[in-house]
C-alpha cells in the first residue's frame, strides 16, 4: 500500500477470497479457481485461496478490505456513516477452474 495501490502485491492481497481448506475440498475447489460471491447488493468474480489451517471456521470467508470487498457492500450506513463491511451474508459458487500450465 505504501508503494502503490496499483502494485502487484496490493492487488493480489486485496483481490482474493480466503476459504478454509475443508470448504475448498467440500466445494471441489482448488486454489486459484474463480468463484462468484454474491451479496445482497452485487456479485463479483474473484480467485480463491486456501486460508491458513484453522484460521477460518467452515462457512466463513475472508477478504482483505479494498476495492473488491467494497464492491459487495451496500450503501445504507444505518445512521453510522459506514455500510456493514464485516460479517455480511454472501453466497459463493464456482465459476471455473483456472488451468495451470
Amino acid at each position: 500500500m505504501n508503494e502503490s495501490k496499483f502494485s502487484k502485491e496490493y492487488l493480489e492481497e486485496t483481490g482474493v477470497v480466503q476459504i478454509c481448506p475443508e470448504d475448498l475440498t467440500r466445494l471441489g475447489l482448488a486454489a486459484g479457481d474463480l468463484v462468484c460471491i454474491r451479496s445482497e447488493q452485487r456479485s463479483i468474480e474473484i480467485p480463491c485461496v486456501a486460508a491458513k489451517e484453522k484460521e477460518l471456521p467452515s462457512g466463513l470467508l475472508f477478504m482483505a478490505y479494498g476495492d473488491w470487498s467494497s464492491r459487495l457492500m451496500g450503501s445504507d450506513t444505518h445512521g453510522t456513516g459506514m455500510p456493514n463491511s464485516k460479517g455480511t451474508d454472501v453466497y459463493l459458487s464456482k465459476v471455473c477452474a483456472i488451468k495451470k500450465d
Binding site: 452485487r42 467494497s70 451496500g74 450503501s75 450506513t77 456513516g81
Partner: peptide, 29 residues
C-alpha cells in the same frame, strides 16, 4: 458522513485529502 452524502447524490463537489474513496467506498458512492 461522506458515504451517505455521496450515495444519496447530495454532494455537488468534493475535496478528498490523503484518502481513496474511489477504491474503497460502496459502488453508489
Amino acid at each position: 458522513t461522506t458515504t451517505d452524502t455521496l450515495a444519496r447524490k447530495e454532494a455537488d463537489a468534493a475535496m478528498i485529502i490523503a484518502s481513496d474513496p474511489m477504491g474503497n467506498f460502496s459502488q453508489a458512492a
